[in-house]
Simulated scan of single mutants.
Amino acid sequence: MSHKGKIKFVSKDKSLFFPTLRKRVDAYFEENKVSKNANSTMIIKSVVLLACYIMPFLLLLALQPDLGISLMLWFVMGLGVAGIGMSIMHDANHGAYSNSKMVNDLMGYTLNLVGGSAFNWKLQHNILHHTYTNVVEMDEDIQDRLVLRFSPHTKVKFYHKLQWVYAFFFYGLLTLYWVVAKDFVQYALFKNNGVNANSKAQNRILLFKLVYTKVLYFALILAVPVVLFNIPLLEVLLGFFVMHFVAGIVLTVVFQLAHTVEGTSHPRPTENGIIENDWAIHQLNTTVNFSRKSKMISWYVGGLNFQIEHHLFPRICHVHYPAIAPIVKQTAEEFGIPYLENETFGQAVRSHIATLHRFGKLPDWNEAIG
């Protein structure tokens, strides 16, 4: 992130693509008298997904079933955590859930309900990922993670050649790392590199809130079952791990299917911090849709299978993406811009595995000395 504040998108030929597209999308909502925010479908989905997280936990406390049933309930909670992340807090923290800031803030804090930090997420996702998609210097989402390599521009290690085999196990650890340590790491990182522009006083309050919400989260999810309901600690810890492993795999796979697949580009800025491309066209070059025709997948992943539409119009609620996708695709084709997509979930997963395999290869000797 050394280029923070220095990287700019500069198109040699001023593109009319995005202004044209934006007019057409705005016209769709105006002509059909449709709000760009949540509708009844979105509200019902929010209730269902929150229930998938809260109700199994209440059943665990009230019924205290045997281990097998208990782990199944934790499993459902994991699906609920992922669903909340993809379908509720994601739209809200983009300001797309409602035209009311209070409602967006309230629904955005569902991320804190599952152990995360809405403040950090907005910095990482809204500012860095959405602005500098697949630019490894800036997009933290594609930076190397422990034994995983998501960019062709970072150093290849010998173990990366097997990452296509072991990656999914580490995906399962994502949210566990998130709730335990990642928010504190990001707090320090974003404060030091200037992404967090708060004053010292504001950051002291932020740190206090971060610690407070973490303590409250672990007290409710771990201490309450053990201390107040006498559920064995090891059983609770095992269930907690299952919940986060499920949530981690779902969230990471869905995200990676949009950016770390065959066909996407990973541009580098010049020495002057210039990416020679129009920002909107850059989004299409670095983003891939998948399973657009699957209503079930679209419902659960919060429209994240319509990543192109989301990156171009993040303040439009995802329930509208299926309607505007044909407009985006047609306009892109008119301007000769590739509209990247994998038609099925299986194709997207295979493409992701192929990309992991390609990124994991050691460089050719001639390339290494060139």
Results as ranks from 00 to 15, higher is better:
2 S>R: 15
8 K>P: 07
12 K>L: 12
14 K>T: 06
18 F>K: 01
19 P>D: 08
43 I>V: 13
60 L>G: 09
64 Q>A: 14
74 W>M: 10
77 M>V: 10
77 M>H: 05
80 G>W: 06
84 I>E: 13
90 H>M: 08
106 L>Q: 12
109 Y>E: 14
110 T>R: 06
118 A>R: 11
123 L>K: 04
126 N>M: 00
127 I>M: 11
128 L>G: 00
133 T>M: 05
137 E>D: 13
145 R>E: 13
150 F>P: 05
151 S>I: 05
168 F>L: 11
170 F>A: 10
171 Y>H: 00
174 L>Q: 13
178 W>L: 06
183 D>S: 05
187 Y>W: 04
188 A>N: 15
198 N>E: 14
202 Q>A: 15
204 R>T: 06
205 I>D: 09
213 T>V: 15
217 Y>Q: 08
221 I>A: 13
223 A>H: 01
225 P>V: 01
226 V>F: 03
229 F>R: 00
238 L>Q: 13
240 F>K: 04
246 V>M: 05
253 V>K: 00
267 P>E: 01
268 R>A: 12
270 T>E: 01
274 I>G: 11
277 N>G: 03
278 D>P: 00
282 H>L: 03
287 T>A: 04
298 S>E: 00
302 G>R: 07
304 L>V: 12
313 F>Q: 08
316 I>Q: 02
324 I>V: 07
325 A>M: 08
335 F>D: 00
342 N>L: 03
346 G>V: 08
351 S>N: 04
358 R>L: 14
362 L>E: 02
367 E>F: 08
